[in-house]
Structure formats: C-alpha cells, structure tokens
Design a protein around this nucleic acid. Structure first.
Length: 145
DNA sequence: GTTGAGCGTT
C-alpha cells in the first residue's frame, strides 16, 4: 500500500522548518522567491511518468519541462523528477501548491533543483588564491658540496 | 515482482 509509506514520509518530515538550518537549497521559505524555475520533485511513485508529472504541475504555470528520471538500466522511474517552468514565480507557486501533495498515491516533495548546467554567462565566483607567498626557494645553500 | 534516499540521459 502506497498510502502507508506516504504517511510515513509525511511524518518523517522531509521539509523540516528549522530556522537554524538555512541551506541554499533545502530551505522552505514561504515568502521568498526561488532563484531558479527548475524544481526537483521527489517522492514520486514508481509508476509516475513524465505525463503524470506534467499534468500535476501544469496547473501552476507554463511548463518548459516535466521529466521523471528513469533508470536507464531497468527503464523504470527512479522516484523523482524535474519540473521546469517559464518563470520562477510559477515554480514558486507550484512548489507551494504541490509540496507534500499526493500524486499517484504518493506524497511528493517539491524543492528547488540544483544547477546541473553551469551558465556560460555566470561563472562560479571562485577567487583564485595565489599561493606564491611562503614558498620562496632559498638558494642560499652554498654548503652543498 | 516491490517498496523509498535522492538532484537527470540532453
């Protein structure tokens, strides 16, 4: 029975509203806007396909992509998928509207997806630290004879 | 045939 596991997942509390644990992606802020129109939907049924995901999230905005990740080896669903909207507001509405909701008999969890493709216009600001200091090779060794 | 944390195949 999928309902038992679903309720178990509800009571497990995947979205724990801890004010201390403020992650960049694991935060469920009711008043904040998402930074990406891409949503990560987990808790899907193993029978849920892209069409089910699309039909479940199509009511919140225009979907660019609704994909359920299926295992290439077995060809079945991995139990999670991704939903991409046109705008982040739609994604936010979808997240607030579909988080911890039922889909195909299972409770799904909607969260902002992690950036899989690094934007070519937005390079990760990684400051290159010049490690030149502290490694001055002392060639004052004149005793090597 | 089946059992539940997670971030995908372009």
């Amino acid at each position: 029975m999928a309902f038992a596991a679903a309720f178990r997942r509800i009571l497990s509390g995947s979205s724990t509203p801890s004010p201390i644990l403020q992650s960049q992606f694991a935060s469920v802020r009711h008043n904040s806007t998402l930074t990406t129109p891409k949503l990560f939907v987990s808790g899907l049924s193993r029978s849920t396909t892209d069409e089910n995901l699309f039909n479940a999230f199509a009511s919140f905005g225009k979907l660019r992509e609704a994909k359920v990740i299926v295992d290439r080896a077995s060809g079945r669903s991995k139990g999670f998928g991704f939903v991409t909207y046109e705008t982040v507001e739609e994604a936010e509405k979808a997240r607030e509207g579909m988080n911890a909701k039922f889909l195909d008999g299972w409770v799904i969890f909607v969260d902002p997806a992690r950036p899989r493709e690094p934007l070519p216009r937005q390079p990760p600001k990684q400051d290159t630290q010049p490690n030149e200091a502290g490694f001055t090779t002392n060639k004052t060794i004149g005793w090597c004879g």
